[in-house]
Design a protein around this nucleic acid. Structure first.
Length: 300
DNA sequence: GTCCAGGTAA
DNA sequence: TTACCTGGAC
């Protein structure tokens, strides 16, 4: 859960999750719909699917006991270098760093490195360097101190608190006054823009939803029926007719933008009072069991 | 409104 | 390299 997500955001999810799914066997056997419901709103839903795959691997390959060896941990689905390093050093005393964004910033400044931290080679180079200086008796403290230094003291840009930093005397960036220029990071590719029309179809007290394709963005979660392009009122009416929906009233639609890392959805959201004799294949009426991603919750 | 942080997998 | 999500800072 903590991959890509702040601690404050995770805590209530973690509490609920551990109550509902208290051990590895329970997770290995959990229904996917319930799993996604527990993850609803947390984002990066493939993490939940990986977590369950990892639970199944632990049950099948490690006798239900979480492995202690870095390489065994690293092979579990959803666990990369960062998470494997964090678990192995914090839980099992292994000299394996967890190089997150904070640690990249701390090390870049400490050694005055101007290489682009978007390059994954930099991350592995820093990891190799750090592994050599790990204190054997306090591996977990060392991992956490590096991350905390970045989170609390070695803040991004001009917010760096060098006056409070225990490493200030050793730090190349501090000596050279280059803190705010480090780390160097290249920009990301521009996002693709997609136009869509979303229908909030009220059938009495009920609202129609359908499950998204498992392999798609937000795979396996639910969505409101929608179509490609920002449809005109006439086109929207035709789309509803094609679905076999009888429309009583329909709003002209409000424009909403939703931004993912790599895509922008420019959407027209139309609310309609309708009657539906036979639900189209795959449609259901929304209830509390359905995992609805934030991208669709905001349409309500 | 815009920008940005944050790991893994394919 | 690109796909994957949300929320907080500004």
């Amino acid at each position: 859960m903590l991959q890509q997500t702040r601690v404050e955001t995770v805590i209530p999810y973690y509490e609920r999750f551990m109550h509902a799914v208290p051990n590895i066997e329970a997770l290995a056997q959990l229904d996917e719909g319930r799993l996604l419901k527990l993850w609803e709103g947390l984002g990066y839903y493939s993490r939940a699917k990986s977590l369950q795959k990892a639970a199944r691997t632990v049950v099948e390959k490690h006798g239900g006991v979480f492995p202690r060896d870095f390489d065994d941990i690293r092979r579990l689905p959803g666990i990369g270098d960062y998470t494997a390093g964090a678990i192995a050093s914090i839980c099992f005393g292994s000299p394996t760093p967890a190089v997150d964004g904070n640690v990249l910033r701390v090390v870049s400044r400490l050694i005055g490195c101007t290489d682009d931290i978007a390059d994954s080679k930099v991350k592995s180079r820093f990891g190799t360097m750090l592994a050599k200086i790990y204190p054997a008796d306090r591996t977990g403290d060392f991992t956490q101190s590096l991350m905390e230094l970045g989170a609390i003291v070695c803040l991004p840009g001009s917010r760096a608190k060098c006056g409070l930093c225990p490493l200030a005397a050793l730090c190349a960036a501090n000596a050279e006054g280059t803190q705010s220029a480090l780390p160097v990071k290249s920009g990301r590719a521009p996002r693709k823009k997609e136009q869509k029309t979303v229908f909030i179809l009220h059938c009495g007290d009920l609202t129609a939803v359908r499950r998204r394709d498992k392999s798609a963005l937000l795979g396996g979660l639910f969505e409101f029926p929608n179509a490609e392009g920002q449809l005109t009122v006439a086109e929207a009416a035709m789309q509803l007719a094609r679905w076999g929906v009888q429309t009583e009233t329909m709003s002209s639609g409000i424009r909403k933008k939703h931004i993912f890392t790599h895509i922008e959805w420019h959407r027209r959201v139309c609310a309609a009072d309708v009657s539906i004799d036979v639900l189209p294949s795959g449609w259901v009426y929304l209830d509390e069991s359905h995992a609805l991603p934030t991208a669709y919750k905001v349409c309500l």
